[in-house]
Design a protein around this nucleic acid. Sequence first.
DNA 1: AATGCGATTCTCT
DNA 2: GAGAATCGCATTT
Length: 205
Amino acid sequence: MYKKLNRNFYKKNAIILAKDLLGKYLLHNINGEVLIGKIVETEAYMGYFDKGAHTYKGRRTKRTEAMYGEPGHAYIYLIYGMYDCINVVAAAKDIGQAVLIRALEPIKGLEVMSLNRFNEPFKNLKRRQITNLTNGPGKLCRAFGITRELYYEDFTGDCLYICEKKDDPEFEVVESKRVGIDYAEEAKDYPWRFYIKDNVYVSRL
DNA sequence: AATGCGATTCTCT
DNA sequence: GAGAATCGCATTT
């Protein structure tokens, strides 16, 4: 049913990859329990010439090293001192492009996600909390137990990986400006954020 | 060694 | 819509 995507899937520039990742599934195997979420919102970070990217002007440090790695690996970083965000390395080695996963639709493992996010069993969640499980880059990492321990994890492996599913319905892709990069001058207005139209779990309209 | 701030979230208004 | 929480990291001295 779920078919793991191979390495070649990731060998394309981050804008194309960001769109191709929509509707795919992120899976995290935690000691045999597999959490599954459908990717419904992404952003492309285009490397050297992108003022919004951590790799702008080729900045290459211990933190950003994963962005220069083999496509299909995880670039995970800490933001605002308390949240992790996860990216999918794109393009090719040493290019520095990646796709930020901004929102997921929870598919399986809701009980674990609920405990991770709210320390409450799923049945206790209010309607609002249910839609807030994974509708943001920091939130989805919390829900899925994704931290920097998974830095440079291989998405074609068996722990944290990405799949496609046959016979999923078609959907419409909306593009818009990226979120939270007001400092990026002209780059802040590039339409490099993509999401599935009308999906309830998109982080914002 | 010191400084300034962020690819966010939550709460309150 | 605004403000706080919170700390690793990139940059500057």
